[in-house]
Amino acid sequence: MSIIYIDVKNDEDSIQIGDYRKQHLYRHIQLDVVAVYESSGAQASNIKNGCTNHPEALITYSGHGDFDYINDYGHTEIFHANDNNLATYLQEKIVHLHACFAGDSLGPEMVRQKCKAFFGYNDYFKAPHEDDPDYHLIDHFMNPDETLVIQLNNGATASEAANMAILAYESAIEAIDNSSQNGNYHIFIRENKDAFCHPNKDSKYGDKSATILMSV
């Protein structure tokens, strides 16, 4: 498998999510990572070069997103829905954006321009802050995306991986409901699940049968 791994860590929010992914997700997939872009190394030009050099791959990204773009370390747009050359970078790829809102317009446009399958969020992605006494509950908020990437890397189809992520969300909801947390995290985990975009949800998110090809 080939994974292009991107953590744009340029403020407290993105550092929290990026550091968490590096400590948890990355160790599960590192043998298949062919390019890593993080912190100041996560520049749009570098990332685009990496996408060109690895034509069949899974891109997994964390950082700030908006409805129609995602940013790099210097707040330059990496991919924008108005870019007609997305296929140059994303053709034959599966894209996972752990970012707010980008599932709204950017994800469907990526698919329209030959990305095989897209996973992301069409709303804020909510997570506990590290100052909260129940910060350990962040595991439940991060586990569905971690499950998704690991499943895709193990050769699951987009549909199978999405289903596993949804199951992880169901477990997470149960865990938060039964935690000592008093209210708003109960809503956050449900909102994250509702905002999760994947090919099983709508064909605009790509091909349910898409997989990352085995390397030969």
Binding site: K126, H129, D134, N184, Y185
Partner: peptide
Amino acid sequence: KNYGIFRLPGVGK
């Protein structure tokens, strides 16, 4: 009591 602390983009904590 025990309001879960979280982040909002553009606001922070």
